[in-house]
Design a binder for these strands. Sequence first.
DNA 1: CAACAAAGGAGAGCACTGCTCTTGACTTTC
DNA 2: GAAAGTCAAGAGCAGTGCTCTCCTTTGTTG
Lengths: 244, 244
Amino acid sequence: MTIADSKAKPPTPRERARSQMVADIVRLGREHLARHGAAALSLRAVARDVGVVSSAVYRYVESRDELLTLLLIDGYNELGDHVDAAVDAIPETDYAGRFKALGLAVRTWALREPASYALLFGSPVPGYQAPGERTTVPGTRVILRLVGILDAAYRSGALAPQHGPAVVIPPGLAADMEAVRAELGLAADDEFLARGVLVWTSLFGAVSFEVFGQYGADTFVAREELFEHHLSVLQGLAGLCEGH
Amino acid sequence: MTIADSKAKPPTPRERARSQMVADIVRLGREHLARHGAAALSLRAVARDVGVVSSAVYRYVESRDELLTLLLIDGYNELGDHVDAAVDAIPETDYAGRFKALGLAVRTWALREPASYALLFGSPVPGYQAPGERTTVPGTRVILRLVGILDAAYRSGALAPQHGPAVVIPPGLAADMEAVRAELGLAADDEFLARGVLVWTSLFGAVSFEVFGQYGADTFVAREELFEHHLSVLQGLAGLCEGH
DNA sequence: CAACAAAGGAGAGCACTGCTCTTGACTTTC
DNA sequence: GAAAGTCAAGAGCAGTGCTCTCCTTTGTTG
């Protein structure tokens, strides 16, 4: 931090070695995370893999929680990159297509990196509190992207009026929605916003069920078809029509 | 097992003491779980609280994983009882009312017992595999109850035809649905079944987001209103109309 | 009632964890 | 070349799951 802005010098060999070391620790930490899960993440084991004695890693990483934070940010950004790439591959005005691409990208990444997904969206690690000032920005990339797609669709008039019976928005909820709308500069009305929140939670609920094995071992064979069906229904729930 | 069916004698003092001890261990284990989380559940700490040396608890509980299994079953049954009580308080033919009661009961219990909820529905504990033969029955109580409500509504003709654009059910998914229908003796067609699965995952997705703190700390103030709104939308998604 | 077997508690011990502190060697800078 | 900064290594502390042995308590049986 202070080193970077005090002098714009090229990094000294020592600094390069240091950041290389931190990168190695994060990389091997990710491997351990993938193999043994977050709760079993052991700094000592990582140290052994790095080829250094356990106490030495404390020169680079303050604590086990610090390593968790690094892995958390790493995971959020990887998921964010993955989602961004998938969404950007779809034309900007194909809102339904972008929505589906986002959902499929989340699922694909989650199934490929179940341990990282569990760290990001599973039960909180006991005794660990993520430092908000470092994790909120990467941690909100996906939801902001989703909100962006839905609000752009709303502005363009591509959001169909909702089907089904009208659902009242009570005043407290309306106030929350107003705050969200103001903070993110959105146009969509309360009804669409509230449904957007439901679509958001439902998307991650479906992915979590699959990744965390809440479906029985062999209840659903065609899981991809099931998920795509869910995405289609959620798309309708959000108000997005095919072809718009 | 063998004791119980070989002789129907009343339990000896020793047996009573034993089951009392196991009950104490589970009870204090639950407290530790609630305070420190699943990954930090320590047999030694529980032993201290029980007032016995650490090695002694292994006379009653085979291992830490065994204790986790006991807590898992305990949690499933408590959630199941809670949900059953809430649903049973609503007239049998008020399908929409029963659905909402089920959803609210899940949320209430989850917020009251976040650690237990995390154990049941959060990221799997690394290295721990729940023994299916002991956990599937209590673990499926809520979903079976939900399926029961929806299928009863379907049979009675109370399920409205779906709104929105028709969504195709691909053959693989149809086969899964047929298997589920056969195994549970259901009447509902593929479309309703698939939507029922989505309602199921969405319900727990919404609860998990709240319990696991995925919403920001202060994004939503009126969380109960938000959840009830979600329930209303999900109710419509399932096909349940108000008043039926 | 006494002898015997089963059950349970206590303690030591092993291998592991996160983390701290000190020691000694190395590198950079003045 | 000396001073300052950096870092690896090792010992050590308190905690963990779990096993083993020893010894007392309990219940059953001859």
